[in-house]
């Protein structure tokens, strides 16, 4: 069972449905026991960083998630959930993240040409930077669906894929058993489903 963390941010309908479509059992939950019992954890998220990080802390689940990650359980953050894995975000101020991956979250406007639109919205190709168990069923150049105005940076060692949008934007990150996708696999058609499938197949302790 995969636990999808429910902390009152965003709509989990599509994420739940996409796991159902690939035959993976999920539980949308804010309970400690479910997270401890799960084979993997998904941290979703849309909206503003500050508000989402606050809501996540209010659930009291941050330490539970960290303890599971320390045990080697696979965790994947999606979109804002991915951004929250980092040390800090500079989205309208300066906010603390979970610090599970070294790096920061900054406005894409800082690095893209001024005639590029913000948010970065639409289908863009993944450029693999290293091998990842997450890419087991997809190939370099496959398209995924993005909607974001901020991006992860200062995290070179963790970047496993980027996308070109006037600059190389971080698309996937990974540090041991912690994974992140800036795009929405649950909205990226077959490619997205294949990423979720690869994640669901990961087992605690087998990733390094």
């Amino acid at each position: 069972m995969i636990a999808i963390i429910d902390y009152g941010v965003g709509n989990l309908f599509s994420l739940k449905s996409s796991f159902a479509c690939i035959g993976v059992q999920v539980k949308v939950t804010n309970k400690k026991e479910d997270i401890e019992e799960a084979d993997g954890i998904i941290l979703p998220g849309v909206g503003a960083f500050e508000d989402a990080a606050k809501k996540l802390r209010e659930t009291g689940l941050v330490d539970v998630i960290k303890a599971q990650v320390a045990k080697g359980k696979p965790l994947m953050g999606i979109c804002l959930g991915m951004q929250m894995l980092f040390d800090k975000s500079f989205e309208y101020g300066e906010h603390e993240g979970l610090g599970l991956i070294k790096g920061n979250v900054k406005p894409i406007a800082d690095v893209i040409p001024s005639d590029y639109k913000v948010p970065h919205i639409g289908w863009n190709a993944l450029q693999f930077k290293k091998d990842s168990p997450l890419f087991k069923y997809i190939k370099n150049g496959d398209y995924v669906y993005f909607v974001h105005s901020f991006y992860a940076t200062d995290c070179e060692d963790a970047v496993s894929a980027t996308s070109e949008y006037g600059a190389e934007l971080t698309a996937c990150v990974e540090d041991k058993n912690v994974f992140g996708c800036q795009f929405h696999p649950e909205k990226s058609g077959t490619i997205g489903l294949n990423i979720l499938k690869a994640f669901a197949e990961m087992k605690e302790g087998e990733i390094c």
């Binding site: 309908f13 599509s14 449905s17 996409s18 479509c21 909205k187």
Partner: peptide, 11 residues
């Protein structure tokens, strides 16, 4: 809409 969104995974 619900039925579509549970089967079709594009925006």
């Amino acid at each position: 809409l619900c039925e579509t969104a549970s089967k079709v995974f594009i925006p």
